[in-house]
Design a protein around this nucleic acid. Sequence first.
DNA 1: CAAGATATGTCAACATGACTGTCCCAAATT
DNA 2: AATTTGGGACAGTCATGTTGACATATCTTG
Lengths: 181, 181
Amino acid sequence: MTVPNSRSAAARPDVRASPPRLAAVASPLYLREDEIRRGIELLYFGYTSMVRGADAILAREGFGRAHHRALYFIARRPGMAVGDLLRLLAITKQSLGRVLTELQGKGLVEQSIGTTDRRQRLLRLTKSGESLEAALFAELETGMAAAYGEAGQSAVTGFWSVLIGLIPAADRALVEGLRQR
Amino acid sequence: MTVPNSRSAAARPDVRASPPRLAAVASPLYLREDEIRRGIELLYFGYTSMVRGADAILAREGFGRAHHRALYFIARRPGMAVGDLLRLLAITKQSLGRVLTELQGKGLVEQSIGTTDRRQRLLRLTKSGESLEAALFAELETGMAAAYGEAGQSAVTGFWSVLIGLIPAADRALVEGLRQR
DNA sequence: CAAGATATGTCAACATGACTGTCCCAAATT
DNA sequence: AATTTGGGACAGTCATGTTGACATATCTTG
């Protein structure tokens, strides 16, 4: 037997034509392949559309998307330690090291020694780092605010909850830890 | 004046604490920065969580994510011409060329000459290409179906509509053209 | 206090998948 | 007949990820 081909399961009912009668359906048996593929595609195109907006600004400064991600999270959680950023980005320290060295070299990021643990290096943006991050954020914000506005508040809640469901449970605390306190 | 820093606008009302009184609010003035950032972050982590699941399978076959994207779209629209795939992926033909050459070399993709326009090369998966794509799809499906199931059907609708809003209007027809007809 | 674990940094080599620029051929369009 | 379009190829470069090895400072634990 070869790898199972879920595409051959053709006769499942369409949930949009006949929604499930029971609230809080546990088993998603009613989901058709086309709906899964639509989610995959929209997630791909939505994500790439979002990040593409910032590329022109980044290119002007001689940076790439890796620099953007570092700037973004340092802006979001000033004083974050290197190890925390490493876990968020899920890359190797060598990869992050290069990016941080470049950002520090151009005076956008600075480090300080951890207060409770002196081995830690706490990261924050300099004034010019904040300016660049703000410009990049403004790019993303434009698209995201328009999408939120078009879709409406309840759609936004649904958008969030599906995305949270995509993140492995073990990683969710990491993401939730970014929120405003 | 430097680049505007939207993070300094601190006193906007929290929509979750006091939702807008008017239905179908046209101007998203009520959106706070934290809600925008939450969308950015969930989109980033949701997207990376989704694609990471397929990496192990790809690595076993000696392929990367670029091959996965090509396989995915060829599976989705068999008979698609090279140029259509190029427009979907928004990469250069040199980049796509390498990927397609490798996929053809390993016997996963085959070409045929266009019927109405003989310059075109129409792409389809071979039997073994279909097997691999099915295995990759099954990986993504697992996560997506679980997320849909947890969130519920109305959340899924919201998820879709926000993502569509993120895609520039000019590109939406391309994405919608992938759906089942 | 000594030993081990942890946080961080660095050097080196390499792989993937983008990019630009250039040139080519065949087929369609004008 | 001339031009445009669809596809392919060669060459070089860049951004960003990877392994592996090793060093240093600091914290934790027996």
